[in-house]
Nucleic acid binder design. Structure first.
Length: 785
DNA sequence: ACTGCGCCAGTTTTT
DNA sequence: CTGGCGCAGT
């Protein structure tokens, strides 16, 4: 984008059906090329077949185009279909051009899906929409007007690591003990302020809090000042600066107010105050706003989402129409009844009554089990039973409260040879080696990006340790410039030791060479050059740790990913904002993920383990947020149950090993909140109220677990989960001597025969077997061949 | 400038 | 029981 003020790139290309040129939208748009993005098909279709597929409420939601509309879309009520139909309808009615429509989502995945589905209906051209996450749309706006808020259009978007590094520097500069006042906490405080749309000058002294004796606000100011000199922003700033831009530059605001004739917001219950303010400013221009959400599925309060936004919608947008989608197309009546009864325990809901015309199914099954291992085994067995009954593995999911719970299932699935996939592990762009290379690229693209520079100044080791970095900092501060700039001055002096001096000089020379290349070289080629010339790949080649080859592979993958980008800047924006990696599929597998990650998904069969007080509802949620925290946990349970189409299995274990210490637990209060008529309780004797005959728990007998049977009455809820320990030695973990297994090695497995190790992650191996294909196995089960 | 030891904490996570 | 981090030693 050469001219940051030029909005024309947002205008539609002439679509495939441009010959049937529309008469144009109701009001003419500025600088509009003839022809639109709306295809001939959609044009012709006054019959609007996409509307015929909707039920009356959905249809109302798609057709009520004027004014403010809140669509309360319960789980499984066809929310996405409504959103997409509405977009198509606006276009087909020629109410607006794609470039006059703003559609905001929370994740890139949601944005991508929406675009695909809109294109499928209107026959292409949806690219002209302002469709994306709040953050990417704000970034787009900010790059165009960067100067107006004191940034250069090339500003960098920092990640959490960078933010923490910066805050640590500030803390140590202020002589604040970061043991007592960790940078993490400060970051959280600042983020909460930003979530509320509060720039430093808007934070009142009363809100300064106790951090470091009330210094948080000053630190926030210092942090923002540092970001500015680095020409950098963090995620919160994307919104915050946009708000500042809108409120200080009325003509800019007016421009966007006029532009966005129709605005759609998905997952409105997850918006924070800053996002709400942003939206309200834009809507004040008379545009039509439609927010879609479900207050019962608000599960991100802990990161600043404000349920109040959806609860207050009618007050905020006068004359707002509220449309409820209550007909559920996903789950059985039993599942809906269970979920509805559970969520009814929350106060302050807008209230919805989900109903279905679907056939009766099975009751929700609640199982009480002796310990976590038995729980995993029981679920694995049930999965196999479902499989025999014809349900595909990828229609089953285990949804856990915390990521650490996945391990138990992984181990069990591996030994039962059930293919599985854990959703939401570390992402590609979060790996250290990828971030290192990206840091190099960032410094090339933006010389004042000190944080990136600091990350790689001594990676690979070039004898530029903390002493040198300190000197660079000092030099930068003295001249008021970035470190790289200060560095070139510094090497001309005698301040540094000769070794450091020449090493630094060489590095600076490299960067200016790379920078010169960047102008004429494709980004991928540049990256390959940098990886090579910096000695970075050599560093990993020399490294003989087992993960080194994998890291080198990742570097190749990074270079390959870069092929798709024409400019370095475009790639870096992608990395900062579109961090999600494609979910490599490949075969039928059970999904294991957190409840948070499951929002928006659906499965035939859902397993919900770990419904125990302290774990779910999580103790910490209740300690930190009290009643509100408990309600959010309950919504999480609601989200979990409503993922299931046919069957839901809830379970709890009486004993669980956490941090290798045994503790007993009592069933979650959420279990008591399920309607007795719709659930079937199967619990080992004594584990739960009116237990029906026990499901055999071999392990408890085999192992002679030494703890007493908990009689529900005499167990108090542990304040901290590990406050209550029982002294069972950690028995059957499959810790193994891996005998130096490595990637690419040929191995033998009793059951699967010979194969080659493809990946290894601790004691979990992925092996491509000659006969059996790819399997995940534990290291203990294979021998070097 | 790097390596090793000891201490503490230990949900959820997108952008 | 881990892992991450800060500090102290070579």
């Amino acid at each position: 984008m050469s001219d940051p003020f030029d909005l024309s790139d947002a205008e539609p290309e002439a679509g495939p059906g441009a010959s049937s040129a529309p008469s144009g939208p109701a009001a003419p748009a500025p600088a509009r090329p003839a022809g639109g993005a709306i295809s001939g098909q959609a044009m012709a279709g006054l019959a609007a077949p996409y509307l015929d597929m909707l039920n009356p409420e959905q249809r109302a939601a798609a057709e009520t185009l004027d004014g403010a509309v809140l669509v309360l879309a319960g789980a499984g009520t066809g929310k996405t279909r409504v959103l997409v139909s509405r977009l198509a309808h606006i276009l087909a009615q020629r109410r607006a051009w794609p470039s006059q429509i703003l559609a905001v989502t929370f994740t890139n995945k949601a944005a991508r899906e929406m675009l695909e589905r809109v294109n499928a209906i209107i026959g292409g051209g949806g690219e002209g929409l302002w469709l994306g996450t709040f953050h990417s749309i704000c970034a787009r706006i900010l790059r165009r007007h960067a100067e107006l808020i004191g940034l250069k259009p090339t500003f960098t978007i920092l990640d959490t690591d960078d933010q923490l590094r910066l805050l640590k520097q500030l803390l140590s500069a202020e002589n604040i003990d970061d043991k007592k006042w960790p940078a993490r906490s400060l970051l959280a405080i600042i983020q909460r302020w930003k979530d509320r749309g509060l720039a430093p000058d808007r934070v009142t002294v009363a809100e300064a809090g106790e951090f470091a004796g009330g210094k948080a606000l000053d630190l926030y100011k210092g942090y923002q000042a540092r970001l500015r000199t680095l020409n950098a922003v963090d995620f919160g700033d994307l919104l915050l600066h946009c708000l500042t831009l809108f409120s200080t530059q009325p003509e800019v605001l007016a421009e966007y107010q006029q532009r966005f004739r129709y605005m759609l917001v998905d997952e409105y219950q997850d918006t924070n105050v800053a996002q709400y303010l942003w939206l309200r400013l834009l809507a004040q221009g008379g545009g039509n706003v439609c927010c879609v959400g479900d207050d019962d599925q608000s599960i991100y309060g802990w990161r600043g989402a404000e349920v109040g936004n959806i609860l207050r919608f009618e007050k905020d947008f006068s004359g707002a129409r509220v449309i409820r989608l209550e007909r559920n197309y996903r789950s059985t009546p039993q599942i809906l009844a269970a979920a509805s009864a559970l969520i009814a325990n929350n106060a302050g809901r807008l209230g919805k009554t989900l109903w279905t015309e679907g056939e009766a199914g099975e009751k929700v099954r609640v199982t009480g089990i002796w310990d976590g291992e038995a729980e995993a085994r029981t679920i694995a067995e049930e999965i196999e039973a479902c499989q025999r009954a014809g349900i595909k593995l990828d229609q089953m999911a285990v949804l856990v409260r915390a990521g650490s719970q996945t391990r138990e299932f992984e181990e069990r699935f591996i030994s039962a040879a059930i293919p599985y996939r854990v959703i939401g592990g570390p992402r590609f762009y979060e790996r250290a080696e990828i971030r290192d290379v990206i840091a190099y690229l960032r410094v090339i693209a933006e010389p004042s990006d000190d944080l990136a520079f600091e990350r790689i100044v001594n990676v690979p080791k070039r004898g530029l340790g903390s002493a040198t970095v300190q000197a660079l900092h000092a030099a930068g501060r003295a001249v008021g410039t970035a470190m790289t700039v200060a560095a070139s001055n510094l090497v001309a002096t005698d301040e540094l030791r000769p070794a450091a001096r020449s090493s630094l000089a060489a590095l600076i020379e490299s960067f200016s060479r790379w920078r010169a290349m960047a102008d004429e070289m494709a980004p991928a080629e540049l990256a390959a050059t940098v990886i090579d010339e910096s000695g970075y790949s050599e560093m990993w080649q020399k490294d003989k740790s087992p993960e080194a080859p994998g890291r080198l592979d990742n570097l190749k993958e990074l270079v390959a990913a870069l092929e798709e980008f024409d400019t370095l800047g475009a790639f870096l924006e992608h990395v900062s904002l579109v961090m999600d990696t494609e979910n490599r599929s490949g075969g039928e597998m059970v999904s294991v993920m957190t409840l948070h990650a499951a929002k928006g998904l659906e499965f035939e069969v859902v397993f919900l383990p770990g419904w125990e007080e302290g774990l779910f509802p999580h103790q910490r949620a209740m300690d930190e947020s009290g009643a509100a925290g408990l309600e959010e946990e309950r919504r999480l349970a609601y989200v979990g149950l409503t993922r299931a189409k046919k069957r839901a299995y809830v379970s709890f274990a009486a004993n669980r090993r956490i941090y290798n210490q045994w503790m007993s637990a009592i069933p979650s209060r959420f279990i008591d909140e399920l309607p007795p008529g719709e659930v079937e309780v199967i619990a080992d004797q004594g584990l739960y109220g009116n237990a029906t005959p026990p499901a055999r728990s071999e392990s408890s007998r085999e192992r002679g677990a030494p703890f007493r049977r908990p009689a529900a009455a005499d167990i108090e809820i542990p304040k901290k989960m590990n406050a209550r320990k029982a002294g069972k030695p950690g028995g059957g973990a499959m810790k193994t001597s891996d005998g130096g297994l490595s990637r690419g090695q040929r191995v033998f497995h009793q059951k699967f025969g010979y194969g080659v190790i493809r990946t290894l992650d601790g004691d979990k191996l992925e092996i491509l077997f000659e006969k059996a294909g790819a399997k995940k196995v534990m290291a203990g089960f294979v021998k070097p061949a």
